[in-house]
């Protein structure tokens, strides 16, 4: 029975990875850049909730909403200030800037909150579900995380397929100049993408810190890297790929911890990535389409 518990926990962790990976993959698909500061936006979101709940004593749902707004604004500002001036620069310059932004966010958090871990109060207040005479327990956090991930995935797919702004995103991701010639505001579309990605990071931050309730300035960094791995694993740029990559990664990580070795779990996760990339360099769902000329 404990297998099912491990699996469900893996599913929950994977759902968090998936939500973060969606932000990574959307930004990559549209701006063609790896936003390494994405993980740290999660941490900022966590601290916003922590401050509001402990300082102002507001209710958790309100705290999460404020955190989403704060991270959305932060994401758009980061893009405007740090990345937009580099639109025509080499990918390496953009990558180094992203790493710089990541350190900046971590160190600002360090200055404000210090390095000792804060105890995060869960934003979820739901009764756990017990199955099979209490042998399988699904916590409220796990339930919310999995449900949130599925809702986000469906909403995002519908948004991209059905709305004008979503179609504009696809157009920009394929060909910026051609999109501009359609009358699409390319810079606006990139901002929107960062806004959505960072809003999702805030959601992921709330869920992650609720399940693993310690918060430090480095809280976002490892999940950020894992989510990046998940996005590459699933095929970077692909939304269903990020979803599947995230879920699989969470399950593999948790099962490795349970049955192989908890120290080796991360090594196993990264090895799986290497193997997938060796066999299928574009990731699980990444496609390489050939264009007729």
């Amino acid at each position: 029975m404990s297998f099912w518990n491990y699996l469900i926990n893996g599913l929950s962790l994977g759902s968090v990875y998936a939500i973060i990976a969606l932000g990574y993959t959307m930004v990559y698909g549209i701006a063609k850049m790896l936003n390494f500061a994405h993980g740290d936006v999660i941490m900022v979101g966590g601290f916003v909730i922590y401050t509001i709940m402990n300082g102002a004593g507001l209710n958790p749902l309100l705290a999460v909403l404020i955190s989403i707004v704060a991270c959305t604004v932060l994401g758009v500002v980061i893009e405007k200030v740090a990345y937009k001036p580099l639109r025509k620069a080499t990918p390496l310059a953009v990558l180094i800037t992203a790493i710089g932004v990541s350190y900046l966010l971590q160190n600002v958090a360090l200055l404000i909150f210090g390095s000792d871990a804060k105890l995060f109060t869960s934003v979820v207040n739901m009764t756990p579900i017990s199955l099979a005479d209490g042998q399988i327990v699904i916590t409220g956090e796990t339930q919310i995380t999995i449900i949130a991930c599925i809702i986000i995935m469906i909403a995002l797919s519908l948004f991209i397929k059905k709305t004008k702004a979503g179609q504009a995103m696809l157009a920009v991701s394929e060909d910026k100049d051609a999109a501009e010639l359609m009358g699409i505001n390319v810079n606006g579309t990139i901002s929107l993408t960062f806004a959505i990605g960072s809003g999702l990071a805030a959601v992921a931050g709330a869920l992650l810190c609720s399940a693993y309730p310690t918060l430090t300035p480095y809280t976002g960094s490892m999940p950020g890297i894992k989510a990046f791995v998940a996005a590459v694993f699933g095929g970077i740029g692909s939304i269903p790929g990020a979803f599947i990559g995230g879920i699989l990664l969470g399950i593999i990580e948790n099962l490795s911890k349970a049955y192989i070795s908890s120290q080796m779990a991360d090594a196993i996760v990264f090895s799986v990535l290497i193997i997938v990339l060796l066999v299928k360099p574009t990731g699980l769902l990444g496609k390489k389409y050939s264009e007729k000329v």
Partner: peptide, 13 residues
């Protein structure tokens, strides 16, 4: 409107 050189259609759409 501008029809660009090399068509530039959105291949995946």
């Amino acid at each position: 409107a501008h029809v660009p050189e090399g068509r530039r259609v959105f291949a995946q759409l």
